[in-house]
């Protein structure tokens, strides 16, 4: 096996990088902090280059769609991406032209997609939130309390819902949420160790 394909090399790099960053967190050593800072900067630079990789893939895929005449929208997608980049590079992202693009195209589009959530919540809640059993009924009642609590007008519609909703949120939900978060964090650390040591390899067969 060639040196470049050996599994031990990426594992060694991963372990060394992790150890350095963790050591800098647990000590006040200036050299370690500086080395850890540099390593984190490298991470930022790599992330920047990865964005380029994404852009190439995006343009390549949509380019193929255009060539195969599969979708006219691919043309719109590529033109939008490249046009935005060109204006940003040529005139700077703080230019009025770039601001016009964002204010008049990107903002309304982003808000529209974001607003779908409001619509989808209704259909999902209508379909799912049904008192099929005692437990489901309890969940339903608690959810209704929290929704009323969060409504600016909730306290006026159902007096007392604010303290009750806060109690549900601050005590019942928070306790469960913390347990959930801690369990997930422990699982994430252990998964991270397995990943760095090369045990998790996305195996394909049982």
């Amino acid at each position: 096996m060639s040196l470049i394909n050996r599994r031990e090399i990426p594992i060694a790099i991963g372990v060394a990088a992790c150890t350095l960053v963790i050591a800098s967190y647990f000590t006040d050593n200036a050299s370690l902090a500086s080395a850890s800072g540099s390593l984190q900067l490298w991470g930022i630079i790599i992330a920047g280059f990865a964005t380029l990789l994404g852009l190439f893939s995006y343009v390549a895929y949509n380019g193929r769609q255009i060539v195969k005449k599969r979708s006219v929208y691919s043309g719109v997608a590529v033109a939008s991406a490249l046009g935005t980049i060109a204006i940003g590079l040529a005139l700077s992202p703080s230019s009025s032209q770039y601001s016009w693009l964002t204010s008049n195209i990107l903002t309304p589009l982003s808000m529209s997609v974001g607003s779908f959530i409001g619509f989808f919540i209704v259909s999902a809640a209508f379909r799912t939130f049904r008192a099929r059993s005692l437990e489901a009924g309890i969940v339903l009642a608690a959810a209704a309390m929290i929704m009323l609590k969060n409504m600016p007008v909730g306290e006026y519609l159902l007096p007392g819902v604010l303290p009750l909703g806060n109690w549900l949120n601050d005590i019942v939900s928070l306790g469960g949420n913390r347990g959930f978060t801690i369990a997930f964090a422990v699982g994430a650390i252990i998964a991270g160790v397995r990943q760095i040591l090369g045990f998790e390899r996305g195996r394909v067969a049982k």
Partner: peptide, 24 residues
């Protein structure tokens, strides 16, 4: 936007109630 927010949440609650009326 706060009135719209209240109305939106009322709509969700209203449809949950309707769903349960139909189900029960």
């Amino acid at each position: 936007g706060i009135d719209a927010l209240s109305m939106g949440q009322l709509v969700v609650i209203a449809f949950i109630v309707l769903g349960n009326v139909a189900f029960v």
